[in-house]
Design a binder for these strands. Structure first.
Lengths: 202, 202, 202, 202
DNA sequence: TATGAATGAGAGTTCATTCAT
DNA sequence: CATGAATGAACTCTCATTCAT
């Protein structure tokens, strides 16, 4: 009830040991993704997440002891998927010109964000750990820079570094655009962005 | 036809009649801007806004009957300033090449966002009126497009339209970048963005 | 919602500014005393306190932002009363023999504890601030020691110091005895305690 | 007359049949003692007890179907140890003067309480059965009274009865003092208590 | 029996908003 | 208009206890 327990609050999401638990966790993460995507991090409630997962509130808290921890787990999960996607992309486009590589990246990243709308919602929440955020961005930038230095002709490492920041933000901008603007504007804008990238890397 | 009571909650914030009231409203708006910028829209509390303005909670509600209405008023206020800024810019840079115009736009818009951090916080809140949001974006795009068609040589209207979307997002990206990444990365990225714009409009 | 606010959690109970508020606070404190006394600190609920005071839960939290703070306020309140009582006692018994002084102290302190059962409940809660607890005990010991050194013949300061600890605990023991044991045992035990004190100071 | 199902929750903790079970129970009791002592009865959680015993929560409930029952079992366990200790003491000090007997009692009881901090925590919980509590206290008083009537010269039975109450509380006071006050005060106070007892029985 | 997931009532706390003075 | 007390729905989180495997 009161107590300053010895178990730090920095605890991670508890991993399930049984098969049943594993299914629960999956359902909870899916529900979390849906609710965070729909309502945004702040407005999402743990109660709704549990309900949408068909679980009791206690069950949700068994595996994700706090709301930030649920968000974090979800974020990490999506980040892994994204990394895998970029790795795959790297193998697919190695040796092609930078402009083409970027075009492909743009397309696939866009699909990912569209398929995982929770990602944007989670990436932007304010109570995220500063350090982790920095690391995450650095990691993504690294992957993008690698794509550029692996192009043919290769983009010089220094410029690839700087460009990765821009590309990252451009992609994010493209996503936000998807949800906010109306269809006709959107199409033209996306085309324009690709053109811009092409011009930039030509 | 005659009465149409103004008790609707959808109405705008009540305008003060006395001079004292005007000062109050200014203080409340300033406080609101500060709190929204610091905590974000969701985490900001009406109580804190009132306190920071040196007013009572009742007084705050006298002028802004609702939290969304306060946000809206603030947003509109900032939007006006921004519009004025872009108008001025239009006069200053008329007749110069598109790339130069964009560079200047980039710089001034950036300054504005840095000076008014509440703008970003308010532009992104989820309960904003869809229609108004659309209109706002359209208006901003119009202003930017006007800058482009007013350049020398003029950018064709159709392309200016499409480009304005991209430019708008790029600028926003530049701002987010300012608060998230560390200084060295930041500088390089900003330079890169300007280079990109230059390449695009060359 | 999220936020690490700048307003420290060490805040004190907010003081009411209006007359109505003053009445509320009094009612809340009284209700708190009743509930803490009846259920003990841990089992007492804020909801019950508010209900017993005829106030809404929000109203309770307006003045006492946390449960520990309510307890603290109550404790301090009772402590003041007790100090006043001991001061008065000091004036009443100055110049009488130590044994008689202690007998009187024993009686009045007992009455106080019986009239304010919340005092025991609050003095024993576990999440109390260590430092404050020490200070409180020291203060009480000081008052008791003063009674002894003010007796005729005066008890030497050093011995008064040590004795005060014992007396304090004896009195508390007497109280616990009142609530736990059955009446006949109680009477005999109280008499015995007084005899013990008399023998000790003779 | 015949069946009387044992499903009542008022029953005692189930006794284990196997050797393995006996070890489990011992571990659970030890863990319970540790947790109750550290956190107090209310703040202690069944989950933490199970964890500290290296058992699952289900296993804990197998043997102790309820939190109060666990506390009760523990309390009884400690009470037995204490009784044994007092019995032994009775044999050791028979025939010595009352003051010396009390001094020895004081010392050994103190050691016991220090070695078994859970005892105090459990003796004070509020949901304890009133009747059992009374019996327990009566039993302890009886043992102490027996020590006094067995002294040389023997304390009259009536006075021994009354004195036992006082002595019991004095000892408890001595324990509480150990955890709350700072070392220097403590030493002096303990000495003072012994002096008081000596004066009382002289 | 042992395990650990499941449950849900209930506790503390927050905050937008209303209302009496 | 100003003030600050009042309200209560809603939220996050806890924990004793039950249940399926």
């Amino acid at each position: 009830m009161s107590s300053q327990t010895s178990s730090e609050k920095t605890m991670t999401a508890k991993a399930p040991r049984l098969e049943r638990g594993r299914a629960r966790v999956a359902a909870l993460l899916a529900a979390g993704a849906a609710v965070f995507a729909e309502k945004g991090y702040d407005a999402a409630t743990m109660t709704e997440v549990a309900a949408k997962a068909g679980a009791s509130i206690g069950s949700l808290y068994q595996f994700f002891p706090t709301k930030p921890l649920l968000a974090e787990a979800l974020h990490l999960d999506l980040l892994e998927k994204l990394t895998a996607l970029l790795d795959l992309l790297g193998r697919d486009v190695a040796g092609r010109p930078a402009a083409a590589v970027m075009d492909e990246l743009f397309a696939r990243f866009g699909e990912f964000l569209e398929a995982n709308p929770a990602f944007s919602a989670l990436a932007d929440r304010r109570d995220i750990d500063k350090e982790r955020k920095k690391q995450t961005r650095a990691q993504l930038r690294g992957l993008i820079a690698a794509l550029l230095t692996g192009a043919e002709p290769p983009v010089p490492s220094a410029r690839a570094e700087a460009a990765s920041v821009v590309v990252l933000h451009l992609i994010r901008a493209a996503t936000m655009l998807k949800e906010s603007d109306e269809a006709p504007v959107r199409g033209a804008a996306l085309a324009e962005m690709r053109r811009m990238l092409a011009a930039y890397f030509a």
